[in-house]
């Protein structure tokens, strides 16, 4: 029975994949886009995308694919794939390989996909995957969804780093070239083993040194009860003379359904006082709507 499809949204592109194919490699900040997915045993789907300043000729690209042919493989044009995808089907003793490409002319984007079928080729699934590859629509905020995290981040924030320790995924975004303002989203597995006390104690311990705690309180986002704290640290002599501090807001909540702790950080240079979160910032958990979003936070009073 085929597993249900899941969606990955990464660096401006989105596509569907079977739930048992998991992301094993992905492009970081400043790299051309790539997502590599594998099942338990084999690499299954590899998607590359890059913006070009010219219109690529798919015929030449497919000819290049054909040159990779070995003695024991036989390539035929890929038939019935959703337009405007074009590609090759390569039959080898180890299985079938699909190499396909398409362009998005308006955005001058070239997308290439490789699908590996080690045993039976599932044509319908293959077509569904190719048809689902689209560019994210432009807008003030963009959805990032992969590795279990789903977050809507304002478009002016760019990915700065990704950390994928076992059971602990962390994405960091910055607006512009400076390190501030900064948003970090973290999702941590197996809290029953490492969360020995209340969430508030853990959150306070997560703060870097030389941060002065201003306020810590219980808060409710969606159907989750969590903790939030505001602290500040020095941003240098000049900034201090201008009355500006590195203000930092930390939020954490435990999603019982996913058995994960979510941790959201927002840091910016600002005058001492409350922090205003970026509009449209949202972190989704339980996959039933946002657990936290900056708009609802202002409406719902904290406890």
């Amino acid at each position: 029975m085929p597993s249900p499809l899941q969606r990955i949204c990464w660096q401006g592109i989105q596509f569907d994949h079977p739930a048992d194919w998991e992301l094993t490699r992905f492009s970081g900040p400043g790299e051309s886009g790539r997502c590599l997915l594998a099942d338990r045993f084999f690499q299954r789907l590899d998607i590359h995308w890059q913006a070009l300043n010219f219109a690529p000729q798919l015929d030449l690209l497919i000819e290049k694919y054909r040159k990779n042919e070995t003695e024991d493989s036989r390539s035929v044009p890929l038939e019935g794939c959703p337009a405007p995808w074009r590609g090759l089907l390569r039959r080898t003793p180890k299985g079938n390989f699909i190499q396909a490409a398409r362009t998005f002319p308006q955005q001058q984007m070239l997308v290439e996909a490789t699908i590996v079928w080690p045993d039976t080729r599932q044509v319908e699934l293959e077509r569904a995957i190719l048809a689902s590859v689209t560019l994210m629509p432009p807008g003030p905020a963009r959805l990032w969804q992969a590795m279990g995290i789903s977050a809507t981040i304002p478009t002016d924030y760019q990915l700065r780093s990704v950390s994928t320790k076992v059971g602990r995924i962390r994405w960091e975004f910055v607006a512009g070239k400076n390190i501030l303002p900064r948003i970090a989203v973290e999702r941590i597995a197996m809290p029953e083993f490492w969360l020995k006390g209340p969430l508030r104690d853990w959150l306070a311990k997560e703060l870097p040194p030389r941060h002065e705690l201003k306020r810590q309180e219980l808060a409710i986002w969606g159907n989750h009860r969590g903790e939030q704290l505001i602290c500040r640290s020095s941003a240098g002599t000049l900034a201090r003379l201008r009355g500006r501090w590195r203000m930092r807001l930390d939020m954490a909540w435990q999603c019982e359904l996913e058995n994960r702790v979510y941790h959201l950080e927002f840091e910016k240079l600002s005058a001492d006082g409350d922090l205003v979160l970026p509009e449209l910032l949202a972190v989704h958990c339980c996959r039933q709507g946002p657990a936290f979003d900056s708009a609802s936070r202002r409406e719902r009073p904290t406890r």
Partner: peptide, 22 residues
């Protein structure tokens, strides 16, 4: 080994890949 990973992943609500690596 696959069975061990599957059981561990199911018990701790991890994905197969997350459990497999560790």
């Amino acid at each position: 080994v696959e069975g061990v990973i599957e059981k561990f992943a199911a018990d701790h609500k991890l994905s197969f890949r997350e459990a497999q690596l560790s």
